[in-house]
Amino acid sequence: MKVRTIERVRWWTYAGLGLAALISLFPLYWMFVVSTSDTAAARQQPPAVVPGGNFLHLATTVFETVPFLRALLNSLIVAVSIGVGQALLCSLAGFAFAKLRFRGRNTLFLLVVLTMTVPTQLSIIPQYMIISKLSWVDTLQALIVPGLASAFGIFWMRQHLATTISDELLQAARIDGATTWQVFWRIAFPLVRPAAFVLGLLGFVTAWNDFLWPFVVLKSPEMYTAQIAIKALQNNYDVDLGLAMSGSFLATIPMLILFVFVGRRMVAGIMDGAFKG
């Protein structure tokens, strides 16, 4: 006799997941609490766990201490450029690897995959020398241009293009006289736009949060990205405990708003990545 039962979800499953959710969200709540408290409230024992009324004061101080609005704008310029650039360039290269035949294709694709394993942070000294040869020190293109190359993105887009677009469809377009570019732009790209969107989103978030490279390349406060501005605020830690916290919170808000709208797609995108099966 066959007994088919799907196991009930036990209470400790919810307890475990609830705890994980709490630990994931609590630091952000705490960031908010401290960035609304004055120094005295932040230093009382036990620590205050509800928001205070000091948010505007601290936020104003943040904008007065460093050019924070400019920093947010710089971050936005860099992150949008990298997100859009990666989505387009990786789709294009992924299309070539998935759907076009050319000499050396497999070798070149293997090369792309291999570049993913090269640790790049350790070459920051020569990277800096190249940027200074190009006279790009203290400019935003020093952050944008290197960020446009994404081997992971090419790998990811190739996977999507190979599985979602049939060769017959492209063949038909060919017979109708479409050029390679038209096949890509009119047929292939629109069909993989959702995947390209998620890729661009991941590129955007990574660029927004990047620290080491902007820290090396940017010199003047007007060129700071939000993350470097946070570091500058931390130098004023003694002045006001909540200042760096307030800056961190202000720099995280745009990501949280974005996440509310596209978080589901990011989750789906990450789960739909290169590792299914």
Partner: peptide, 12 residues
């Protein structure tokens, strides 16, 4: 909720 830390920057 588990992906929220990932979108938070290292600095923050």
């Amino acid at each position: 909720s588990m992906l929220v830390p990932y979108i938070t920057s290292v600095a923050a």
